[in-house]
Structure formats: C-alpha cells, structure tokens
Amino acid sequence: MFLSDFMIPVVFIIIIVYGLLNHVNVYDTFIKGAKDGFRIVVEIMPTLIGLMLAVGILRASGFLDALTKALTPLMEHVGFPSELVPIAIMRTISSSATTGLILDLFKTFGPDSLVGRMTSIMMGCTETIFYTMSIYFMTVKIKKTRYTLTGALIATLTGIIASVILTYKVFGY
C-alpha cells in the first residue's frame, strides 16, 4: 500500500529538511535523541521480562489455547479471530501485559498472518482505557466521570471493527 511504504521516508525528509532550514545541527541532535531512546528501552526492559515470562507460562500451560477454543464458536460468525479476544480485553487494562500477549501471538502465528496483521493494525487505534482514565482522573480527584467511559468504549469498538474490516480488505483474505 502506497501510504505504508511512503510514510517513514516522508517523515525523514520533512524533519531533516525542516531542521536544516532552521539551522539545526541535525546529526548531533539525532545522536542526542537516540541516546534518550536507549534510556527509554532500558527502563522498560524489566517490565518486558516480567510480562513475557507470565505470558510464556500461560501459553505453555495450554491455558491460552483452551480459552481461544472456548471462544471460537462465539466469535466465528462476526469474523473476529478468537485468538485476539484475550488481547482486546487485556488492552483496556494494561499496555505492557498486552505487549506480552502480542509478542506471543507473533511468535506463534507470525506477524504476517491474518491475526498478526489484524493485531498490528488494532493496536494503533486502541488504548488502555481503564488505566488511562484512572490515572488522569485520580490526579485531579474527580469521582464522577460522566460519559467518558461510554465515549472511550465507543471509539475503541469503532477502531476494532475498522481494523477487522481493513485487514480483510487490504490484505485480501
């Protein structure tokens, strides 16, 4: 797809040309920023070990397969792969635990499989609803959140439906 192939090169061109026009030392700045990236990854490393470990154990026990199998008859006629149900549910609670599940799915089915592509697309338009809401409202001590949850769920559901349809359409399954 055109957009997919051009996005990253175009971002590179825009940022570097804009930087040069504004007399930024682009190379030195890039190196400085890349250093920040190192710190970010090093900080998430322990979390990733913890969660990949938990998901790994869950997968090896056969529990994930059993759960998926139980969900299959329910999900079959909406065209939503039952392998993605645990991911979609986990996504509303914790983004790092979701990452663990996604990586497990990539390992089992491959990122270029139907479910692999569908998750990849789905992740960009969903968020950790419950986590985000509690953090943001807690800092300002709001108790009544009115229609925030409804709105967030509607947006997320729309995103999931769009991802499913787009995966089937774009990759021609």
Partner: peptide, 11 residues
C-alpha cells in the same frame, strides 16, 4: 511497515 496505512485509517 505494511500495516502503517491501514493502521492510520483505523485510528
């Protein structure tokens, strides 16, 4: 990167 386009549309 093949998922970038559809992901933008979905989002």
């Amino acid at each position: 990167a093949e998922i970038i386009g559809p992901a933008i549309v979905a989002t």
